[in-house]
Amino acid sequence: MAEQLVFDLPPRAAMGREDFFVSPGNAAAVAGIDGWQGWPFGKMLLVGPEGAGKTHLVHVWADIVGAEVIKARNLTDAAGEALARASGVAVEDVDEIAGRGDAETALFHLHNALAQRGAPLLLTARTAPERWGLNLPDLDSRMRQAGVLRLAPPDDALLAAVMMKLALDREMPLKPRVLSYALKRIERSFAAAQAFIAALDAMALAAKRPPTRKMAKAILAEDKD
């Protein structure tokens, strides 16, 4: 049988508040986002590993506040100028721009413009600002001034929920027994869950069948090598 070629189309992820699964590891962060009006200095950092739900929470917040969302790597002076008038701004993956002078300066000015107007600023990164290595001391101190909301690495319930959601985002019919099988054998990180679901989806699409435990086994065996 000829192999079915599969397009790697990005799934459209559900980003609503109702799609966010609250667990002990992220409850504090969710509460902190909900209480955005009380953020010290009008800004907050959302810190967590890849796939922990930072982007999801950012969109939840942006919906409430009517805020603009931008990736830090796309920040330029011009973009910053336009955003400075928004009712709130979320800047994602700030740790990525460490060492890039233009983007750091743009974020610094954006930060000041928002602070002066009292508009809230939400920032996301994988680690706390002490680990970013920002070059601009003015920006560095302002980032370290912010409060930090942490998304913890997943516990079992959260990892199961994340895999369910990833499967549903891809409209992949993932059976409970396949999921249980994988849960016990997978590396317990969000990134591993994402990679696993993507690989399983690709394999199932190529085989033109719903994902099976055998496929899961094959993918997990591949990981080991």
């Binding site: 508040r17 509460a31 909900d34 209480g35 009006q37 009380g38 953020w39 010290p40 602070a115």
Partner: peptide, 20 residues
């Protein structure tokens, strides 16, 4: 489950904040 009240947000009004 949606609006899980955090212990610290209880009984606190938004205007009691030190934000600028």
């Amino acid at each position: 489950a949606k609006a899980k009240p955090a212990p610290h947000s209880a009984g606190k009004t938004p205007d009691a904040t030190p934000s600028p």
